[in-house]
Design a protein around this nucleic acid. Structure first.
Lengths: 208, 208
DNA sequence: CGGGTTCGTGAACGCTGTTCACGAAGGCAC
DNA sequence: GTGCCTTCGTGAACAGCGTTCACGAACCCG
């Protein structure tokens, strides 16, 4: 249908424009009227492509997650071989955790507005499934080295610990870059992450 | 002066009403018109007592910080004696870090709306000095056990590490309680905090 | 009691996201 | 091609927000 084509064109045009605005000026600068003007459609047309601006923002955030994944695939390790890991393999796994955390910091520092939109955005409705699936998938990057470091953990415990490790790292990056509590330069913050995540890896490896 | 008295009455009435609203319904429910109706003043009168709602919110947040301090004084340890700490003292310091983190979680879980207002609030202007001073003061609760655990650290490094430890804990609590990433019950989250902060303490104590 | 100053008042402003009656445009039967 | 029906974008309008400001009341002082 010609109509569906136009709808799809409008959708992508809106996503592109919203992404550009968020990346350049932040989530707070995203206004419905500006958006309509940029893509050359009427104000109400936005709401034929998305139920509300929240849904549009969520779609932009999905793109950000895809961008982020491309940034961390470089520091990933292979899935663990069956059987006990050697001390060297354990050390490599701990090191991967640190590299992942540093990669997270680096992405946040390089794409501050995009990255902030991921969390600054306050949800009213429940998150859609396709967004949650993406989150779960990304956590595997943490679970893999964790499986080497703590092979005794069950699937649920490992998934939970992976989320906790991410949360801790996110706290470091979030408060370190945001001007609310402190503003740290990226090198200083990287040092802190290496210290904290490094200590975490050591502590997790030794503590039973 | 009679006028100054009324201004002061208005100020405290506004803070009280704002605090009650934030505690009961969250920061998003705080509206200028509702506030004026509750304290029985005109809409414009709010702006004779505070430059804008942000300043009022910040004052409420200061009260929250005071509340929080009362909640953590119970788990504090005495300032470290000069000289090297015994292994038992080091273990006690590591344990204090865990207890502080758990106390932070507990406070956040008990006062969710108040606590969220501390961070949900997006700043436009720079934070006022009296607010920053309060923040610095509260960080000493973390720095004290840290000084026992890592006596070799300089003042700046210790202050930085204290902020990093707080940031990591805040990440755990923030993402664990907020429904964005996951919703964990307080006991489960407490377990995660004990695991992560415990591992952090061990890793920091051993790693030079 | 008059005159000057100070202060609260609330209608109004500018901005927001979202809606909806309307008119234009597309598709279809004849 | 023509008439009709449906379908869809349009943008004025709505409800709500924080903030402002001319105005009138209330106060202080001589």
């Amino acid at each position: 249908m010609r109509n569906d084509d136009r709808r799809e064109r409008l959708r992508t045009a809106l996503i592109d424009a919203a992404e550009a605005t968020i990346a350049a000026e932040g989530l707070a600068a995203l206004k419905a009227r500006d958006l309509a003007k940029e893509v050359g459609c009427a104000l109400g047309a936005i709401y034929t492509a998305f139920p509300d601006l929240d849904a549009l923002i969520l779609t932009v955030n999905l793109r950000t997650l895809a961008l982020f994944e491309r940034a961390i695939t470089a520091v990933t390790i292979a899935p663990p071989p069956t059987g006990a890991a050697s001390p060297a393999e354990r050390a490599a796994a701990a090191d991967t955790l640190v590299r992942l955390a540093v990669a997270y910091l680096h992405f946040a520092a390089e794409n501050p507005a995009r990255w902030r939109a991921l969390f600054q955005h306050r949800i009213t409705h429940a998150l859609p499934d396709w967004y949650l699936v993406e989150q779960v998938r990304l956590f595997r990057y943490i679970e893999t080295p964790l499986q080497v470091l703590r092979p005794g953990l069950g699937d649920r415990e490992r998934a939970l610990l992976a989320r906790s490790l991410f949360s801790a790292t996110h706290g470091l990056v979030s408060l370190g870059l945001d001007e609310k509590l402190m503003v740290l330069s990226e090198p200083v913050l990287r040092g802190q992450i290496e210290i904290v995540v490094g200590a975490l890896g050591r502590g997790l490896a030794e503590g039973g």
